[in-house]
């Protein structure tokens, strides 16, 4: 069933990619040109329109890895495993970019590139977890099933970092500002919220599109390896049969 759904979704891949491109171009226009600067931060507030969606997408990517890992351990589906591997790679990219843009935003506002604030530390830990996950998958290649199983367990254990990242600004003393969109309400005025929303939609669509491309990439790679392997085995068998 899940394969049918994935096939259906893959049919609309182009539309997702086009939607992402349109949203990101519009969002950049709104964010850099049409929206007003912030009363307190001035122009640097525009960094928020890339930083927040990047960080959010990174969390989404890890959630996909987590859910996919549970699914994989339950059903042992190769395609889902490819998806987890793909989402982890993308999560690594998005986490890294969120850290970089955050650092660029922190310098003109907080007056430092990096500080040992709980939000920053817990986010950097997500980066390390993803790095570890990808390294494990790179080095543990002899037995694909073992590789997938170990990676899935690691991803499930590492999920504990996600609620910590989200609530760190509410639970502990931080330099990072608290949540702007929470049970208290929305603390961003409409003119600034519009580019943020469009950029968020754009980055989420972009992630969905990249996930499809990368899952396909890993799947095709595995397929090619498998077919090559089968061919080699066949050649090997035929040779051993013909040789005296």
């Amino acid at each position: 069933m899940i394969h049918r759904i994935i096939k259906q979704i893959q049919r609309y891949k182009g539309w997702v990619g086009a939607g992402a491109a349109v949203c990101l171009l519009t969002g950049t226009y709104l964010g850099l040109i049409a929206s007003p600067p912030d009363y307190y931060q001035g122009e640097v507030v525009r960094i928020m329109y890339v930083h927040v969606p990047l960080a959010h997408t990174a969390l989404l990517a890890y959630t996909v890895v987590f859910a996919g890992s549970i699914w994989y351990l339950w059903k042992r589906d190769r395609l889902i495993d490819n998806m987890c591997h793909a989402a982890a790679g993308l999560g690594f990219l998005f986490t890294g970019l969120a850290l970089i843009t955050g650092s660029i935003w922190a310098k003109p506002t907080w007056n430092t590139w990096w500080t040992w604030d709980p939000r920053l530390v817990s986010f950097a830990i997500l980066f390390l977890i993803l790095a570890g996950y990808l390294m494990l998958r790179t080095f543990l290649t002899e037995d694909p099933d073992r590789e997938s199983r170990y990676a899935a367990v690691l991803a499930i254990v590492g999920f504990i970092d996600l609620p910590i990242i989200h609530f760190s600004v509410e639970w502990w003393r931080t330099l990072h500002q608290p949540l702007s969109i929470s049970t208290r309400g929305v603390s961003i005025s409409g003119e600034l919220l519009l580019p943020l929303t469009i950029m968020s939609i754009g980055f989420h669509l972009l992630f969905a599109y990249m996930l499809m491309v990368r899952t396909q990439l890993l799947y095709l790679d595995e397929l090619l390896q498998a077919k090559k392997g089968r061919l080699l085995t066949q050649m090997h068998l035929s040779r051993s049969q013909t040789s005296p």
């Binding site: 912030d38 608290p178 702007s180």
Partner: peptide, 11 residues
């Protein structure tokens, strides 16, 4: 280091 709040709006 300056801590800013979570509200954002035009002047």
């Amino acid at each position: 280091m300056a801590k800013h709040s979570e509200d954002y709006m035009p002047i």
